[in-house]
Amino acid sequence: MRMEKPKGWNTTVGKKVIMGLTGLFLVLYLIVHLAGNLTVFIPDGGRTMNLYSHTLHKTGPLLWIIRILLLLGFIYHIITGIQVTLRNRRARSERYAMYASKGGPSKMSPASRWMIITGLLIAVFVPIHVNMFSLGPYYETVINGEPMRDIYRLVVERFKEPEVAFGYAAFMLFLCAHLIHGIWSAFQSLGANNRRLMPFLYSLGTVLSILIAGGFFVLPIYTYFFIPLP
């Protein structure tokens, strides 16, 4: 396989830096997003959630800047992820008849092997998700004399449909798998790893993945069973 001489960000090392940066940016967003969503658990008929959402939308241009950055980061992550995976396939065209791990220090797992699969499943999930909520029906409510979008009602309404609640939760398992390898791997890709950091980063990755994906997983299920329709 002859290729053109790659430079800078187009090298294999450069591309993984891009994967790591865009990946960690998306993880940061997920944490903020989850924090907002957890307001569903506050039993005040959606007051806090709607106020939070309203406050976010009042930031106007700032919100749009973040949305555009997110979209670009997401697309860049996907394109680079696909490029990386295709190159990896090409690098060994004749497969082994037998392939096994020696274990030991290896970090290989189904999560690390299926990054492209779990990634593409997330790519399928996100547009459906945005279309269902952000672009979904506009209910209105009045809080403190101010009219605003009743996003809480939309969320609870949707999660009362079993296929939505359980389908959503199922996708969060794929997210969890993606992050279990992704988070520590991103630090390693950015060179931000050494002998002392390694065990910490690996545990941090696992704990954060379970907290993030777990939060998004519990949300629809809890809503389905325990939150009354407003």
């Binding site: 290729m3 294999t12 190159r87 990896n88 090409r90 020696k102 030991g104 290989m108 890709s189």
Partner: peptide, 25 residues
């Protein structure tokens, strides 16, 4: 580092996905 990485890529090796199988082997 720039030259060695460029040569490594030119030879057609894959990307490092941080699986860590290399260290095990």
């Amino acid at each position: 580092v720039q030259r060695m990485v460029a040569q490594m890529d030119l030879e057609g090796f894959g990307n490092c996905s941080n699986h860590g199988e290399c260290e095990a082997a």
